[in-house]
C-alpha cells in the first residue's frame, strides 16, 4: 500500500470526514446505479440472443452470475474490514463490516433463489446438490453466522472484534470448503447432469453480463454507504442518549 492511499484511508477513520464524503457521493451513485441497471437490462433482454442450448432461460444468468460475484466480493471486502478492525483498530472498518454482512447475505440468497429457478427447467429439479450451489449455500450459512454473532453480543466493541475474528476464520476456511465440496461432488455427480457454467458463453452475452455486474457493484457501494452513514449517526445518537441519561 502506498503512503498516499494509507493516508487517505486513515483520514476516513474520522467519521466526520466519512460523513462528508458519503453525503456527497450517495446521490450521484444512486443515479449511476439506476442508469447501469437500465442499460444492463436492455442488453440482457434485447441485445443478447437466446442461448442455443438453454434457450431463453439464459436471461436468468444476468441476475444469477452478478449475484454470485457479489457474494464473493462482499465477503472479500468484509475480510479486509476484519483485518482493519483487528490490526489497525480502524473505527470505520468495524462499521463497514457490520453493514456489509446483511447486504452480502442478500446477494447470496438471490444467487441461491435464481439458481434454483434456473435449475428447475435445466436440471429438472429445484435443487441439485451440485458443487457450486452447495458452496454458495455454505457461504450463505457463514453470512448468517456472522450476522447472528453480531446481533447476539450487545457490547459494540466486543461484538466488532468477535465478528472480525469469525469473518477471518470463515475466509481461511472458505477455500478449503470449496475444495472439499468440489471433490465430494465428483464422487456423487451423475454424469448426465447439465452444467450451469455451460460449454460456451456467447460473446454478445458477455457485454450485458459485465454491465449488470458493474450495476450490482454500484448498487452495493451505494447501499453500503447509506447503511454506514446510518450506523455512524446511530452510534453518535447512542452516545448522546447515554450522556443525557448520566446527566439526570
Amino acid at each position: 500500500m502506498t503512503d498516499q492511499t494509507s493516508g487517505s484511508l486513515l483520514r476516513l477513520a474520522n467519521p466526520a470526514v466519512f460523513n462528508r464524503l458519503a453525503d456527497r457521493v450517495i446521490g450521484p451513485f444512486a443515479v449511476l446505479t439506476l442508469l447501469l441497471f437500465a442499460w444492463g437490462l436492455y442488453g440482457a433482454f434485447f441485445v443478447a440472443p437466446p442461448d442455443y442450448q438453454q434457450g431463453e432461460t439464459i436471461r436468468i444468468m444476468f441476475i444469477h452470475v452478478p449475484a454470485a460475484w457479489m457474494a464473493m466480493f462482499v465477503y472479500a471486502g468484509m475480510s479486509a474490514s476484519a483485518l482493519g478492525t483487528l490490526i489497525w483498530r480502524h473505527p470505520m472498518a468495524d462499521v463497514a463490516l457490520k453493514c456489509a454482512a446483511p447486504l452480502g447475505a442478500g446477494f447470496t440468497l438471490l444467487c441461491l433463489v435464481t439458481g434454483s429457478l434456473w435449475g428447475k427447467p435445466m436440471w429438472g429439479t429445484w435443487w441439485e446438490w451440485d458443487a457450486r450451489m452447495t458452496s454458495v449455500l455454505v457461504m450463505f450459512l457463514i453470512y448468517i453466522g456472522v450476522i447472528a454473532l453480531q446481533q447476539a453480543i450487545e457490547e459494540p466493541n466486543r461484538a466488532a472484534r468477535a465478528v472480525a475474528i469469525l469473518t477471518l476464520v470463515g475466509a481461511v476456511n472458505l477455500p478449503i470448503i470449496k475444495f472439499s465440496v468440489d471433490w465430494w461432488s465428483t464422487l456423487h455427480q451423475p454424469a448426465s447432469v447439465f452444467r450451469i457454467d455451460g460449454p460456451t458463453i456467447h460473446g454478445s452475452m458477455l457485454g450485458p453480463l459485465f454491465i449488470m455486474g458493474i450495476a450490482f457493484l454500484m448498487l452495493y457501494i451505494t447501499l453500503l454507504m447509506l447503511a454506514m452513514r446510518a450506523e455512524v449517526m446511530n452510534r453518535r445518537a447512542e452516545r448522546l442518549e447515554l450522556l443525557a441519561a448520566e446527566a439526570e
Partner: peptide
C-alpha cells in the same frame, strides 16, 4: 471462545461451527 460471553450460546455456536466442519 467467540460465544463465551453469551448466556444461551449453544444454538449460535452450532450455527458458527457446523459449516466449518464440512470438510
Amino acid at each position: 471462545a467467540l460465544t463465551v460471553s453469551l448466556n444461551r450460546g449453544g444454538l449460535l455456536l452450532s450455527l458458527l461451527v457446523v459449516p466449518t466442519a464440512i470438510p
